[in-house]
């Protein structure tokens, strides 16, 4: 198996821009489940949202696509067992992952101060995968 790595950084200020935008579009970036996971007792968890967006961008980077836009809603960053983030692909994102012959996709997210960073590691299988 050949490893592939993706990394991305999202400033929390980008999340603040999204939330106060005149054209509300958070629902085009995060699924309903992700939006639910991105709330805390005081409202939206800005660091959590930034981390989730960074993770999606990092997943997109391991897909190594050309002439494709990021399928934001097809790359979900959910909460796995133990609270660790896990990647769930659907629709176009899932097809792109198959085309890239990606096996398991692992993600790690961190945030401190004004930034969130995510790293994704995936493996390319030696043979094309069936759909």
């Amino acid at each position: 198996m050949i490893p592939r790595v993706g990394v991305d950084l999202v400033p929390l200020s980008r999340v603040e821009d999204i939330l106060r935008s005149a054209t509300p579009h958070l629902h085009r970036l995060l699924s309903d489940t992700e939006i639910s996971l991105s709330r805390n007792d005081s409202g939206f968890d800005h660091a959590g949202i930034a981390g989730r967006l960074a993770a999606k961008e990092a997943v997109f980077k391991v897909l190594h696509t050309e002439r494709e836009t990021l399928p934001w809603l097809g790359v979900e960053i959910l909460r796995g067992r133990g609270g660790w983030p896990e990647v769930q692909l659907s629709g176009r994102a899932r097809r792109l992952a198959h085309q890239a012959r990606l096996d398991t996709i692992a993600v790690s997210i961190t945030h401190d101060g004004p930034f969130a960073v995510a790293v994704v590691v995936a493996h390319i299988t030696s043979a094309p995968q069936g759909r």
Partner: peptide, 28 residues
Amino acid sequence: DSLSFVEFVFVIEKASGTSIDVDTVDID
């Protein structure tokens, strides 16, 4: 960039009065 692209599409939709399916767009 990829993050602002989503709002960008939204702005184009509002200005043009069209609905854009980002899963089928031609990036060009």
